[in-house]
Design a protein around this nucleic acid. Structure first.
Length: 213
DNA sequence: GACCAGGCACATC
DNA sequence: GATGTGCATGGT
């Protein structure tokens, strides 16, 4: 019998300890990071975020006020900068024309409605939407990313080409509905992925999950 | 110098 | 619906 998702979580937590995610000072910064990290390593995102901070652009209002060209230049280290500048712009438009209230106003909307609204924003797909909902707004949603897919597929819990929503439902079925747990779990999976489950990484042999799977 | 990284939209079949 | 491709930097 394969280990359940809760058992895996407990093992990872014992092995790695708390990961203290998301590394950001405000919900807006979390959201910006979620867009910038699309298909991009976090170290490059950190550089872009640092530059945004230097240019004092880490508030919705101030970011809204700069041109696309300027914004793209500042986030350049994150790669795909023209695309991501446009995506940030779409997100800002979603927050509201003057961006005055930022993310606070979103807290009142139900999670499922808000998720639909975010998915409707060009440039925000399921992982980015769920990252914003979980890490910025503390909504209990399981975030599925490339590492999640690879780790669970390599341990035969899911098909490697399974749809996002199916993987998410599979994980959430086996877990208590707690934002704190989903937060830690996702961070632990990324940690495990980086250390032991890269695309082509023999670290698999030392995977801490090896004993129970 | 290829390959990869905390995706997504869009074109084409 | 499934598959392929562009976006682009910086680390391995």
């Amino acid at each position: 019998m394969a280990a359940g998702v809760l058992q895996i979580y407990r093992l990872l937590y014992r092995y790695f300890g708390p990961q203290h995610w998301w590394p950001a000072e405000t919900p807006f910064e979390v959201s910006v990071g979620a867009i910038l990290t699309q298909n991009t390593s976090w170290v490059n995102v950190e550089k872009a975020i640092r530059r945004l901070r230097e240019y004092r652009l880490l508030t919705p209002r101030r970011m809204f006020a700069v041109s696309d060209k300027k914004l793209a230049a500042v986030i350049r280290p994150a790669g795909c900068y023209a695309v991501k500048a446009r995506r940030l712009r779409h997100f800002l438009a979603f927050l509201g024309p003057d961006c005055g209230t930022g993310l606070r106003a979103l807290a009142a909307v139900t999670t499922s409605t808000l998720r639909r609204q975010l998915l409707n924003v060009n440039g925000i797909g399921p992982e980015t939407a769920d990252s914003i909902l979980l890490f910025a707004l503390n909504k209990p949603l399981f975030v599925v990313d490339g590492y999640t897919r690879r780790i669970f597929a390599r341990h035969d819990l899911i098909a490697v080409d399974a749809a996002y929503d199916r993987i998410q439902a599979f994980c959430m079925r086996g877990l208590p509905r707690e934002a704190k747990l989903f937060n830690e779990y996702h961070a632990l999976l990324v940690r495990l992925g980086k250390d032991y489950c890269r695309k082509r990484n023999p670290g698999c042999a030392r995977c801490p999950l090896k004993g129970i799977m």
